[in-house]
Write a protein that binds this DNA or RNA. Structure first.
Lengths: 240, 240
DNA sequence: GTCAAGAAAAATATCGATTTTCCATGGCAA
DNA sequence: TTGCCATGGAAAATCGATATTTTTCTTGAC
């Protein structure tokens, strides 16, 4: 579906420089704010407020919000406006369940269909990721943004040999929601657990075209993220 | 996600009677027209044209169209408006593949979790469906609409014991696309093949809580729809 | 003091006009 | 002919104002 545009996006939603539509810019900014937790779950998205904040027209805001419905990042009901999608542990578990199902399938198909192009994408992404992960061993906070981007790239590369658009589309929506949960719950913005060796193992299995193994490792990888969130929720206060 | 509102929808998109928003009415009508093939795949959706046809404002149309993006029933690109989602045999195969994956999973979960409520929903839906299917044995054309609605109800009931919202949401999107393909390609609007015994078999397996069998039958059921479409595309006429 | 009805305020949804972008067409030069 | 740019019309995107609905607040009866 639509790509994440982190950071370097200009501050000007009317940015004609970008070639993009104003709606698309507002859409991207809203999405970014929701994924980062700047806009809290279930908080109301008042059109007038957003309109003046972004300096655009109300119908532009509404259209951007409507498009976010596609990603399930906002909800709307009857005559009472838009809200940021709620979060819950149950919801996160559902997301993880779906990710296990879809990522496993996508990786398997990638291994079955992937050509040389695909393979080199995976190698390149794995390399880029491992470099930043090595740097992070020293807890360089500044690299966390890099890590998130490269982690995404790596996982995108893994499934990019799969040619089922629907699968990739659904998968990406779920991935985005996962990111939101991690960012919201892990307030410190660190890299979760020891993910490095897991990535390495997945990488090796995929390149060796061991489908069963790759599938299993992928599922485990996702399952562990649930454990992390559960621990976090259990050990901490619940949002106001 | 959103439900299909076939037929009985008033002709007045400004229908305040319905309690619904104008946007929602336009959304529903557009969706219906797309699913029925009234709006052909890849045809342009000119805002001005739709605006005057429905007697509403342009931004209202735009917002309705934006919401259809969520269902992948329309596409939009940069500065060149909206189009009805394209169709292709490859796309239909991808949809079928995903449906096999998701419906199988959903049925399995329903069988695992479904309570008495669920079971009786299934029984009721199966009964209603079988009645109309019996009537159709005599080729009563008038009942085709009924059949489509009850077929949907039956399949909805089967998975309604599953409590994973994401799974059900994705599943419904895919189901709608399947319907579109069938309606577009089967110009005569008949019931495809001998579907009655398949439904019966699925029903029995589900009620007997035979998860493996139910899953297999579900997958076969979907696989056969691919055969039907393929035959149709190949130019062959499939038995009515 | 509680509750309900109604007025006032706030927010949503809808409208129609304006601005911007795209695209086909045709003149003109190489 | 072929390629290139200007130009006009069509369509898309954006705007800001209006109408409608929901929510909040006030007041008064019980």
């Amino acid at each position: 579906m639509t790509l994440i545009q982190n950071g370097q996006n200009s501050d000007d939603p009317t940015g004609k420089a970008s070639g993009k539509t104003i709606i698309e810019n507002v859409f991207a900014r809203l999405r970014s704010e929701i994924l980062n937790g700047v806009l809290a779950p279930e908080s109301r998205l008042r059109v007038e407020e957003l309109r003046s904040r972004f300096g655009v027209a109300s119908s532009t805001v509404r259209e951007a919000l409507s498009r976010l419905l596609a990603d399930n990042l906002v909800t709307t009901e009857g005559q009472r406006g838009f809200k940021v999608a709620p979060v819950s542990l149950a919801d996160f578990r559902e997301i993880a369940t779906m990710r296990m199902l879809l990522e496993a399938k996508a990786v398997r198909e990638s291994i079955a269909n992937g050509d040389d192009e695909w393979e080199s994408r995976v190698v390149a992404a794995a390399h880029r990721l491992s470099k930043v992960e090595a740097a992070l061993a020293g807890n360089e906070w500044s690299a966390v943004n890099d890590w998130e981007a490269r982690n995404r790239e790596f996982h995108n590369a893994l499934v990019s040999g799969c040619d089922n658009r629907w699968l990739l589309n659904f998968r990406e929506i779920l991935y985005n929601h996962s990111v939101r949960y991690l960012r919201i719950s892990l307030t410190e913005r660190t890299i979760p657990r020891d993910v490095r060796s897991e990535h390495q193992a997945i990488f090796e299995a995929v390149i060796a075209r061991k489908a069963d193994l790759a599938e299993r490792l992928t599922i485990d990888h996702i399952a562990k993220s649930v454990t992390v969130i559960e621990a976090r929720v259990a050990g901490l206060k619940v949002a106001s």
